[in-house]
């Protein structure tokens, strides 16, 4: 009699542990999902930001701007037609 109650109890406890493990891993999975979601949004944000910064870099290194700075701020001049020496082999 007691033996059968004990074995029922063991089965019950095992089931409980399995059930609790199932609940725990479900909770963990949901939490991880949230984290992944947040990280994915962050990645998207940084990717977009990165893209925007690349565009700004493109703007700032555009040939027109570089030439303007070279001429006006740095006082550089482009070589004239006669300022070139070509060395032929």
């Amino acid at each position: 009699m007691y033996k059968s109650i004990g074995s029922y109890l063991q089965i019950f406890l095992m089931s409980l542990i399995i059930f609790l493990f199932y609940v725990w891993q479900s909770v963990q999975r949901v939490e991880t999902d949230y984290k992944i979601n947040c990280l994915e949004k962050d990645i998207q944000f940084f990717k977009n930001n990165n893209r925007y910064l690349k565009i700004r870099l493109n703007e700032l290194t555009s040939l027109g701007r570089v030439e303007r700075i070279a001429r006006k701020k740095l006082g550089l001049v482009s070589p004239g037609k006669n300022d070139v020496i070509v060395i032929f082999e």
């Binding site: 037609k81 006669n82 300022d83 070139v84 020496i85 070509v86 032929f88």
Partner: peptide, 14 residues
């Protein structure tokens, strides 16, 4: 594209 060898450019620059 390099200028041609016999061009006056080279001599003027030199």
């Amino acid at each position: 594209i390099l200028p041609q060898k016999d061009s006056t450019l080279v001599f003027q620059a030199e």
